[in-house]
Design a protein around this nucleic acid. Structure first.
Length: 294
RNA sequence: GGUGCCUUGGAUGAGUGGCUUAGUCAACGGUCUGCAAAACCGUCUACAGCAGUUCGAAUCUGCUAGGCACCU
């Protein structure tokens, strides 16, 4: 079995290429977008429409509540078990999306790190809010000196997570890291879509305007009560929330959305650039070129 | 023609004789093993031009160029 992974920065034009590829392959689309997984964020995440989902069966679109906990590790498991289920009837499957870490989790795996005890998580989160980051850093140095040396300890998220694991498991966080790439019972072919940066940025800017015209502000207004959920710490929403709370003017918020989306696209490209196994295409040429490959 | 004011890095905008850089925005580069569309780190050292004063000038003086205001 072959798993085709279609990836690329946001707004590059993955959706249409994915649909046609899926039809060509006779495969459903396994969505790989960490935010399209949530229900109720359709406009801001440019989720596949109902029509598109009628054209091709989609998985991992709108399957979770805004408030539910999800992670790359869970995604890895969910995708792997789905592939097991589908592999009998498909010679190839298509995974499509731009969430770098999720792609990585499926292709290379994530080490088996114990699930964090929710109480531990809450405690540490509260300590972080209370400004105890320095103490927490010191604790990490005691509990996991190896990790402390290499970790970016200026990033609170890294410190907190390592500590979470240390406290839940009673073992150093780094003892769970194997640095091994997991073997998969299928082949992986990565197809990357890319455009000239100016072209991509122009598409991003225009897509944000289109989202606004398509009701993004109303969507944000509906989601406003849930604004502290992690799922909504997302470009397109977090800016409009500040607008709804009276902090920002709407035009300013819209410019911020464009800017943050551009930055996100750059981050994606930086991440993907390290992956030499990706074959790159311009979206306009991808299908015709791929026809000969698929 | 005269008088006064202004001219700072891609944009904006402080500063005022001397420690090395204001700040903001944009742009760019990077990190990444459980909330990743997240979080974090880094780069861009300018003072319109020329000549002077001074140990030392973006900061003072003169001239030149460009701009603005007012006067005739």
């Amino acid at each position: 079995m072959i798993l085709y992974v279609l990836l690329g920065p946001t707004a590059v034009g993955k959706t249409e290429v994915a649909l046609q590829m899926a039809e060509k392959l006779g495969s459903p689309i396994l969505n790989c977008d960490s935010r399209q997984i949530y229900r109720g964020m359709e406009i801001g995440t440019a989720a596949p429409t109902e029509e598109q989902q009628k054209r091709v069966r989609h998985y991992f679109v709108g399957t979770h509540d805004i408030g539910s906990y999800y992670s790359a590790a869970q995604y890895e498991q969910d995708v792997l078990s789905l592939i097991e289920e589908l592999r009998g009837e498909h010679r190839s499957l298509l995974l499509s999306g731009g969430s770098m870490m999720y792609i990585d989790a499926v292709c290379n795996g994530i080490d088996d790190i114990p699930s964090v005890d929710p109480e531990v998580r809450d405690t540490l989160r509260n300590r972080l809010i209370n400004g105890e980051i320095d103490e927490m850093r010191n604790e990490l140095r005691m509990l996991d000196p190896d990790y402390y040396l290499t970790a970016d300890t200026r990033n609170p998220k890294r410190v907190v997570h390592a500590l979470e694991v240390c406290y839940t498991s009673g073992r150093p966080y780094s003892s769970f890291l194997t640095n091994e790439r997991k073997q998969r019972p299928f082949d992986i072919v990565k197809i990357g879509l890319r455009r000239e940066r100016a072209e991509l940025f122009d598409r991003i800017n225009r897509r944000v305007d289109a989202m606004m015209a398509g009701g993004l502000l109303d969507e944000a207004r509906r989601l406003y009560p849930f604004r502290y959920e992690n799922a909504l710490n997302t470009v397109g929403y977090k800016e409009l929330f500040r607008c709804l709370s009276g902090e920002w003017e709407l035009p300013f918020a819209v410019e911020k959305i464009k800017k943050n989306t551009r930055d996100y696209a750059k981050k994606q490209m930086t991440w993907f650039a390290h992956d030499t196994s990706i074959q790159w295409f311009h979206p306009d040429e991808a299908l015709s070129t791929l026809n000969s490959i698929l």
